[in-house]
């Protein structure tokens, strides 16, 4: 038998209060020391999946109603989010959710308090640009810097599993490239395991080892990243290849609705 993956999501269903079924039987595996990408359009359920893994769905009146989530050999879908994060799962939310009223330094202090660590330099090590801004309120940072801070804060936890939710969202192409370089670097040097949700399939598949494509609460395709990059449908609908005017594939609909594309 192959060794158990770090994260094993087994056929889960997630319902938001009262009866909004968002994830309809999803299974994913994340192996140690890899980057796993979850791709898909708006509303596919990527965020919900990451929140289910971190237990945070509970704070939004959501629950895992079927299946199970195993982390490091233990069942976590029945746990409170605070316990899940204690086990080393840190969720970096979409939309650069840092503490805007606090300065950069205070953001770091607050999270350092949680993990009782004095090694706060790790944030500046990977994101040296933040050092000059340490006394500035985080709400006044540029979008790219806010995302750097959001990821940097997670490093303070020395996470066993880092959940990144659309780090590229709302950033200019150049900022996205810089950020992805940062992510690759810290992934290598810190020997992290990352579960990455993205709409920006091209960027995500550049750095990922394995990928899942999520549509409407279901996984429609999965495979090693290099396979997905070559896949005809993925190229067409997710990597901005040849556009089809009238496609039978239902993804075409959302493809047109999308605001930004790779």
């Amino acid at each position: 038998m192959p060794p158990a993956p770090l994260l094993d999501v087994n056929n889960i269903e997630v319902i938001y209060h009262p009866y909004i079924l968002v994830l309809k039987g999803i299974s994913i595996r994340v192996e140690r020391n890899t980057i796993t990408a979850v791709l898909g359009p708006n509303g596919a359920g990527k965020t919900t999946l990451l929140k289910a893994v971190s237990g945070l769905v509970r704070l939004e009146r959501g629950r895992v109603t079927k299946g199970s989530i195993m982390f490091d050999g233990e069942r976590i879908d029945t746990r409170e989010p605070e316990e899940v994060s204690r086990r080393g799962i840190v969720y970096v939310a979409e939309g650069r959710r840092i503490f805007r009223e606090l300065t950069v330094e205070e953001n770091i202090e607050a999270v350092a308090y949680a993990w009782n660590t004095d090694d706060t330099d790790i944030v500046y090590k990977y994101f040296p640009r933040l050092k000059a801004k340490r006394k500035i309120r985080a709400g006044y940072l540029s979008g790219g810097e806010q995302q750097m801070l959001a990821i940097g804060l997670a490093l303070l936890a020395k996470p066993k599993l880092l959940l990144l939710d659309e780090p590229s969202l709302g950033l200019a192409p150049r900022a996205v490239s810089e950020l992805y370089q940062n992510i690759t670097q810290l992934y290598r040097e810190e020997k992290l395991t990352i579960l990455l949700a993205e709409q920006n399939a091209r960027k995500a598949l550049e750095i990922a080892d394995y990928g899942y494509i999520l549509e409407n609460g279901r996984i429609v395709l999965e495979g090693p990243a290099e396979k997905l990059r070559e896949d005809k449908d993925v190229k067409e609908f997710y990597l901005g290849g040849a556009r089809r005017e009238k496609g039978g594939y239902r993804t075409v609909k959302w493809y047109r609705r999308k605001k930004r594309w790779v």
Binding site: L56, L59, E82, A93, F99, R100, V111
Partner: peptide, 16 residues
């Protein structure tokens, strides 16, 4: 202060 600004975000980052 972080908790009071954003309890959800604070939970995500492991604050008690």
């Amino acid at each position: 202060r972080a908790v009071s600004e954003d309890p959800f975000g604070a939970t995500a980052y492991g604050l008690p």
